[in-house]
Nucleic acid binder design. Structure first.
Lengths: 345, 345
DNA sequence: ACAATTTGCTTAATCGTTTAAACAAGAAAA
DNA sequence: TTTTCTTGTTTAAACGATTAAGCAAATTGT
């Protein structure tokens, strides 16, 4: 039993496909279709369980009602949650989402972009990775609507929805300082992505504004691909150096997970041996023996707004540039609790 | 600058679209296209950066090289990981995946199914939810290729790729017993899904085969939607009952997370107050103060095989029914370590 | 020298929709 | 009664690709 098409309905009703199309699209009034025949068409459509062919519709109309979502990795909880929000919000508006994971590789990202462009997605929501500036320029040139999510390039004029990472790190730093920690390290990815730089910059300014001198050895930048081993080395170094830290900020979820595993192995106690604040969020932060203080990004809002901006662009391509930085919230927990001040002498 | 089509190339080259199509599809030999003109066409195609319109191709060929993946929730790490594997494996074979989350709701699942059918996906990989038998029958009737993943309906003859849940639970039960626990509870979803029943059945048989009498109060079934509160009640009950348990099996990741939060609140020590084995997997199991023993499902294999089966079905629809149950592996950790036997007295 | 074959290309139908334009017949206006 | 307007319907082109069939012209065989 093949799928019923407009033609099948038309044949059964003894009319042209045009009429059927008009009726099933609710245009019977404007196009003056007879009451009787309209009803008959609806009837037959129901009997045949007619389902329009989206491909044909899209080919004709040039709109697929599909948006491409490019992220680093769907198996990372941060992106998985973002993806879920985007999916739901898109569906609410009649759009379908195609998700692609690029593993922080600009090359894979290019591939995805091309595949999705060929599939005629109406627009993109992109969590950019390092070295993908050319892709952004390409989209601009080709006039393909897109919104950057979570990460953006300040030197490229684009729509974006992101977190105020500078402020988030600044707050994290201040929080640790106020809790009595003074030798604070940070671990981030080695990257010239703006969002990562901002996370480090915010941290540095928090130190500066509180009259704590920053030591180069406190900043540990590791490569994404070889994170597993580099994190361990970094922890070793940051704990061994002359200026041994008593607190650390982890700029991403992945870094924190790797570091925590190693910290456990070393039998270091959080926060007495090392206080911790991390980006990202997942159950593990709640259930760790010492619940982890983390930077809570406005996930839901980020995703929703990205979809909203994109859909506005799709409706009206002439619309002005939309950019927004949302504030994160520091969720203070045990892992950064006030340091017992050394009393007595 | 609009996208270049076959027609544009044809015009520039001064030939018909047929020739262009032949050349760009590498059929110049069979269709005897002249060497010179072929080269010219390739040249122009490159200049115009020609990218074929997938919609048109699909409409003509009836194949979209797209597969629909229906899961409960992409923000659940188990499904996110599955999705990642499926995505990669599909891409390797030139397919694109559209993921939909149905939140364990048969109705949402129906919606997704219809949306994706209208979008002409070539086939489905489905993690069925309760009450979705009719959907499976529908797909069979309509002759739409699909593979059930992780969950299946034994009374319906379909392709499927799943875990041997009976065996996994049996092993979990035996493991706890051998570790010295004798009052073992289990928490599962209230559901008549086969995979869930199997998880309970395996557990019961493990008890039976080790001469431990099963008590009804040891089985706690909670509703998915109201899990948060029900889990707490269930824990309260199972710890208060006359036959207070000394170990528990959690049949899903979500249940374990909720339960662990509450267990922490109650200041119960794992495993001394309560030993634990759980399904699912995520960083939290590694980093919990007492690493959690868990049932490791062959995620990678499950996903890969599901894609493989589906692609075989797509190539040759007459192919016989493919079914496979894969073995899970119990990863024993601290949370179920051997109970110190009561000595002395 | 004429038929048969090969070579190189075009024509046109097709996939399933949408929609502007044309058209016929009946009703209202003149 | 003729003209105009309205109503209800059909025709056909278009979206962008694929591909069977057709058709010249050049080449080969006899």
């Amino acid at each position: 039993m093949k799928k019923a098409s407009l033609k099948d309905i038309a044949q059964q009703a003894g009319v042209s496909t045009a009429l059927v199309s008009y009726v099933l699209n609710g245009k019977e009034k404007e196009t003056r279709v007879g009451e009787v025949i309209a009803e008959k068409i609806r009837q037959i459509a129901k009997e045949l369980n007619y389902q329009p062919n989206h491909l044909a519709k899209s080919l004709r109309s040039g709109k697929t009602y599909t948006i491409g979502l490019i992220i680093a990795d769907i198996s990372n909880p941060f992106f998985a949650n973002i993806a879920r929000v985007v999916e739901d919000e898109a569906k609410k508006n009649g759009y379908t989402v195609i998700i692609g994971s690029c593993d922080e590789h600009a090359e894979k990202s290019w591939d995805l972009l091309n595949v999705l462009i060929n599939r005629q997605v109406d627009g993109f929501i992109i969590v950019s990775c390092e070295g993908s500036e050319s892709q952004v320029h390409y989209l601009k040139e080709r006039n393909i609507p897109f919104v950057l999510l979570d990460r953006h390039f300040p030197e490229i004029q684009t729509d974006f929805v992101a977190t105020n990472n500078y402020k988030a790190s600044y707050d994290a730093g201040v929080h640790l300082i106020q809790s009595g920690y003074s030798k604070i390290g940070i671990m981030a990815y080695k990257s010239n992505m703006y969002h990562m730089e901002e996370r480090v910059r915010g941290y540095k300014h928090a130190l500066r504004d509180n009259h704590i001198e920053f030591h180069d050895s406190w900043l540990k930048e590791v490569h994404f691909e070889t994170m597993d081993s580099e994190v361990r080395t970094a922890i070793d170094e940051i704990l061994a150096s002359g200026q041994r830290v008593d607190a650390m900020i982890f700029a991403t979820y992945g870094l924190a997970i790797n570091a925590l595993k190693y910290i456990n192995e070393l039998r270091l106690k959080v926060p007495s041996d090392l206080a911790i604040v991390s980006y990202g969020q997942a159950e593990v932060f709640d259930l760790y023996y010492c619940p982890i203080t983390y930077v809570q990004q406005p996930l839901e809002m980020l995703g929703k707004t990205a979809v909203e901006y994109l859909l506005m662009k799709l409706k009206n391509p002439e619309e002005g540039v939309k950019q927004i930085l949302m504030e994160a919230r520091l969720i203070a927990r045990e892992s950064s609790k006030a340091k017992p001040t050394a009393v007595g002498g």
